Every structure is written in structure tokens, then in C-alpha cells.
Amino acid sequence: MEMILNENDLVVGARFENGTIQDYVDEKKIYGLIRIEDSTANWFLFNKEESGEDLQKLYKKVLKEEHFIENDFGEEIVIFNKKGTQPFEAFINKIDEYLGDEMGSFI
């Protein structure tokens, strides 16, 4: 996975063999976008205790739509607005890999 950096050398996404992932694609910097081959989905990390008001509202809205949530020790990876043929699990696997690589770059 090749990390994408912004002008301040902060990780803001990544490229991988068959797609890309971005941390934020909205004005409020609440959710990101992941693309695998012909499929896309929006995603964000959510923690019931620590997430801000905008993220809390989005979470409640997403629960009413088609979505997938992977609970990762109290922090949830939330995927919504999926389009295309890739299953939710493929998105989760890439997001997990991305988050693991991103954390590894800080250590």
C-alpha cells in the first residue's frame, strides 16, 4: 500500500493494487471514500463515547440505511453508501490494512 500525503506530509489516503482509500471527502471531514475495482463506499471510524456531534448524527442516519459495522475494540469501522459488486468484507479488509499501515508509519 502506497500512502498519499498532503502538503504537510500527513497521511490522507493510500493507493493499492486495485483501488484507493481517502480519509475525508466531505466538507466537515467526517467520512472518507474507498474504491476497490468497480465498487465504492463511504467509511468512517466511530466511538460512541468520543465521536463529535456531527459524527454522532451521521452514525444515527447511517443506521437507517444499508450499512456494515465492524467493531474493533470499542471503535467501529462504519461502511455505508456502497455501490458496485464488492462485498462489505472486502472494504473492511482494505480499511483494516490501511489503518494498520498508517499506525505502523508512526511507530
Rank of each mutant, 00 (worst) to 15 (best):
M1T: 04
M1R: 12
E2H: 08
I4P: 03
I4Y: 01
I4T: 05
L5Y: 07
L5P: 07
N6Y: 11
N8L: 14
D9V: 11
D9I: 10
V11K: 05
V12S: 04
G13W: 00
A14W: 03
A14L: 07
N18D: 14
G19D: 02
G19H: 10
T20G: 10
I21H: 01
D23T: 05
Y24P: 05
V25C: 05
V25I: 06
E27G: 08
E27K: 06
I30N: 11
Y31S: 08
I34T: 01
I36G: 03
I36D: 05
I36S: 00
E37A: 12
D38S: 05
S39N: 00
N42F: 04
W43H: 06
F44W: 07
L45T: 10
E50R: 15
S51W: 13
S51P: 10
G52T: 10
E53P: 03
Q56D: 13
Q56G: 03
Y59G: 09
Y59A: 08
K60Q: 15
K60V: 05
K61T: 14
L63G: 09
E65Y: 07
E65V: 01
F68T: 06
I69D: 07
I69V: 13
I69Q: 08
N71R: 15
G74W: 13
G74N: 13
V78H: 11
F80K: 03
F80P: 02
N81S: 13
G84W: 02
T85Y: 02
Q86Y: 04
P87E: 11
F88D: 05
E89I: 09
E89Q: 02
N93L: 11
I95A: 03
E97W: 15
E97V: 06
E97M: 08
Y98K: 00
L99V: 09
D101Q: 13
D101L: 10
E102K: 08
S105G: 02
F106C: 11
I107C: 14
